[in-house]
Amino acid sequence: MNEHTLQPSDFEKLSQEEKKGETVVRESISAWKDAWLRLQTNRMAMISLYILAFIVLVAIFGQWIAHQFTGNDFSTNDLKATNQAPSGDHWFGTDGLGRDMFARTWMGAGISLQVGIYAAIVDLIVGVIMGGIMGYFGGKVDEILNRICEILYSIPSLLIVILLIVVMEPSMFTIILALSITGWINMAWIVRGQIMQLKNQEYVLAARALGANPVRIMFKHLVPNAMGPIIVTITMTVPNAIFAEAFLSFLGLGVQSPAASLGTLINDAIKAMTVFPWRMLYPAILLSLTMLCFNIFGDGLRDALDPKMKK
């Protein structure tokens, strides 16, 4: 046995210096701050974030800029100046009715972004509630809801969306509604999986022992801890919704003229592409760039929030 025999020196007071060895010098870093720091080291993701911020800003102020500098707006026809190439008067040229493409492109970007963001918000709300119910209560409730989700999921979502828009008049509202009807399922499953893992943790047991009701446990304890995957899913939902909206526009089921989304602009431009290719150029670049940035940023966010998931 290697027993430590007590010496008188063991009972001497520590000097001030030795006491400081226990104090934490670095300020504590929360999980969110940690993720943010990790994200900042990802150069591509940060560039994407800046580009997205720029696109959002110009989409918000695009109409004002067009009006202020060139006196154009998105809906005024000018039949004397149709299909013009980009120039000082019309920065992105004009379309078949002589409408300014700069104003229209940025309006389209705004509408496409709005569709993406609103669809993501609806998915978030419905998905978290449904997924929370499935994951928290489990058992019969989970089984029945899961079956419903599976049936809804097995029907190709774009087909449902198309059918719904054919029935309802196409507008931004109906497009978002149609996209949300099937869109929430993915989110619900992710939340369900997270909650099922988390609900057996000790802090949930503690909360329950203290008499917290399920709603409080759900939103104060479970959802905040599942936030990482939820946020990643949202960033991936936005480009998907933007793509779906553009696809609907391609079928003639997008927002109706004089309003425009990037999808409707591209669809209009394709018809005249061989003669006036520049009409295609800016909406196509903007749509691709937006989707690209969301995808890269989403990937970066996933790596930052969950280093274990890193691929």
Binding site: A246, F247, I270, M273, S288, M291, L292, F294
Partner: peptide, 22 residues
């Protein structure tokens, strides 16, 4: 690969058509 996932088919197709066709 990221470009491939991000650029929608209705942008790729007209682009190919314009460059290689027209």
């Amino acid at each position: 690969a990221v470009l491939g996932v991000s650029i929608p088919s209705f942008v790729v197709a007209p682009f190919l058509q314009y460059v290689f066709g027209v």
